[in-house]
């Protein structure tokens, strides 16, 4: 069989498709719950995106390497075990080296295992493909997820706290308490508004790419 070069066009497509055309969050509508919970501020959103990308990529590679050894009857359980292992490791590392962020993420790091993107990609891709393409596919989907998280987190932190990554963007003097007329929007830090923002992103994406609209 012809050896596929590491960065061939096919592999690159695995990386770029999930960023737009087959974005796991806005097109496949997977992994929405954590997208709502951790995007209150930008920093936890980015940390979460990195964590999910690591989990998807590494678990895809591991599952791809094991794919010929797994008995079919316990396939799903093996997936669960491998993903849980990675998720717990990520959680422990965050608590050791990024404590403040891990407090903001709280239970949602542990809930990465329930993120449908992870198991979805393993089932759909890693179990039937070689390790390197699986790795690239994992990274691509993680990045697609991360892209949406960053966009939503950006809007939510800016409008809800007036800061970005903890740095004040909207000057304090604008606020009503300091004599101005502005006030932070309390609704955007609640999950329902995050869902509405996600809906608006999907709306914009579908207006620009008519192929995505179901007939």
């Amino acid at each position: 069989m012809e050896k596929e070069s590491l960065f061939s066009a096919k592999n690159l497509k695995l990386l770029t498709d999930p960023l737009g055309r087959s974005n796991p969050v806005t097109v496949l509508v997977l992994g929405v719950c954590s997208a709502l919970a951790v995007t209150v501020k930008l920093e936890p959103a980015v940390v979460m995106a990195i964590s999910v990308t690591v989990v998807i990529a590494v678990s895809s590679v591991v599952m791809s390497l094991l794919r010929n050894t797994i008995p079919n009857r316990i396939r799903i359980i093996v997936q669960l075990v491998v993903v849980s292992l990675l998720v717990i490791l990520v959680d422990q590392v965050l608590r050791a080296f990024a404590y403040d962020v891990s407090k903001q993420l709280s239970v949602f790091v542990g809930l990465i295992i329930t993120n449908c993107i992870v198991m979805g990609r393993i089932e759909a891709f890693a179990l039937g493909n070689k390790p390197w393409p699986s790795f690239v596919d994992g990274i691509g989907n993680g990045l697609g997820y991360g892209l949406i998280l960053v966009v939503v987190g950006f809007v939510r932190e800016l409008l809800g706290s007036g800061t970005l990554w903890g740095y004040r963007i909207i000057p304090s003097s604008f606020y009503i308490a300091n004599g101005g007329v502005y006030e932070n929007n309390g609704l955007v830090i609640l999950p329902p508004m995050a869902l509405i923002l996600l809906g608006i992103i999907i709306w914009i994406q579908r207006s620009r790419n008519k192929n995505l609209v179901e007939s």
Binding site: N185, G186, L187
Partner: peptide, 8 residues
């Protein structure tokens, strides 16, 4: 909207 955005 105002109730949840600007409760004060």
């Amino acid at each position: 909207f105002i109730f949840f955005s600007y409760p004060s």
